[in-house]
C-alpha cells in the first residue's frame, strides 16, 4: 500500500538556523492527523515545506508515491488567518471561487457551473447568507469557514489546515471539525496544525508530535502520553494530556 504522505529526512532552515532536523514519517491515507508541538517546534514550517511553499535543505516528499508537482491539483491549503489581507476588495463568493482556479488552468474563467458549486460549498459550511459580504466584515470563525468552503471547491484529496481554530468561536469550530471528519470518511487525507492538546484525541485519529524533529507519530491515544509529551515540552512544567496549552 502506498502511503498518503511519505517524508524522508526533511531538513529546513531559516537564516542558517535549522528549524526542522531530519523529519521522516509515513502517514496512511484517509486519516485526520493533528500536527502538535510547542511554540517554535516547526509545525507550520513542516506544513509549508511539505507543500513546497518554502525550500527545504534536503529531503524527499511523496504523496501516494508521487511528487508534489504531479499531485499539486489534488492539494488544498488553508493558511493561518493572520497571513491574509482582510481589506482586499473581494466578497465571500468570489473568495470561494478562487478554489476553482487550479482546475480551470490558465485563461479560462469560472462560469455558471463553478459559481453554483461555490454556492453549494458555502451551504455546506453554513455561510450561504454571507455570500455578498466583503471578507473583512466576517468574524474569525466565519472567515475560517469561508476558507474551508474554498478548499472544498478544490475537490482536493489532501487538505492542509494551519491553525484553523485560532480566534474561532465554538460553533464554527464544531462546524469545521464536523466537516473535516466527513471528508476523512470520504477517504481524504487531512493534516491540521493545532496547539490545543485537550482536543487531541477527540478531534484527530493520528497525531504528529514535533519539536524540531519527530518526537512521536501514530494513533492519538498513543502519542498523548506523558513520555512523548515530556520529551517535546520538557519534563518539568510541561502540560499533560487533557490540559490545554494556549499561547
Amino acid at each position: 500500500m502506498a502511503f498518503a504522505l511519505e517524508v524522508k529526512n526533511l531538513h529546513v532552515s531559516y537564516d542558517g538556523k535549522e528549524v526542522l532536523r531530519g523529519i521522516s514519517l509515513s502517514a496512511p491515507p484517509g486519516r485526520l492527523t493533528g500536527i502538535i508541538g510547542p511554540n517554535g517546534a516547526g509545525k507550520s514550517t513542516f506544513m509549508k515545506a511539505v507543500l513546497g511553499l518554502l525550500n527545504a535543505d534536503c529531503g524527499t516528499i511523496r504523496f501516494n508515491g508521487k511528487t508534489l508537482r504531479e499531485m499539486r491539483k489534488r492539494m488544498a491549503y488553508v493558511p493561518q488567518r493572520s497571513s491574509v489581507d482582510w481589506d482586499f476588495p473581494i466578497n465571500v463568493r468570489d473568495t470561494v471561487l478562487l478554489g476553482s482556479y487550479p482546475a480551470l488552468g490558465l485563461i479560462r474563467r469560472p462560469g455558471k457551473t463553478e459559481k453554483e458549486e461555490a454556492d453549494k460549498c458555502l451551504v455546506k459550511v453554513g455561510m450561504e447568507d454571507f455570500a455578498d459580504r466583503q471578507i473583512g466584515q466576517l468574524s474569525g470563525g466565519q472567515q475560517q469557514r469561508v476558507f474551508l468552503a474554498r478548499a472544498l471547491l478544490q475537490h482536493a484529496e489532501f487538505l492542509f489546515l494551519d491553525e484553523p481554530f485560532v480566534g474561532v468561536d465554538a460553533s464554527s469550530e464544531d462546524v469545521i471539525i464536523g466537516l473535516l471528519k466527513e471528508l476523512r470518511d470520504a477517504g481524504k487525507s487531512i493534516f491540521v496544525v493545532h496547539h490545543d492538546l485537550s482536543k487531541g484525541t477527540a478531534y484527530f485519529d493520528d497525531l504528529l508530535l514535533l519539536n524540531g524533529r519527530v518526537v512521536a507519530c501514530g494513533p492519538a491515544v498513543e502519542v498523548l502520553r506523558p513520555g512523548p509529551l515530556g520529551q517535546a515540552y520538557g519534563a518539568f512544567g510541561g502540560p499533560v494530556a487533557g490540559e490545554g496549552v494556549n499561547q
Binding site: 513546497g52 493558511p79 478562487l98
Partner: peptide, 18 residues
C-alpha cells in the same frame, strides 16, 4: 485577470496552485 487576482490577494494560495 484570474492569476493577477490570486497572486495579489493571497500569494501563498497562488503558490499552492503552482
Amino acid at each position: 485577470y484570474k492569476e493577477l487576482l490570486v497572486t495579489t490577494f493571497d500569494p501563498t494560495l497562488a503558490a499552492t496552485f503552482g
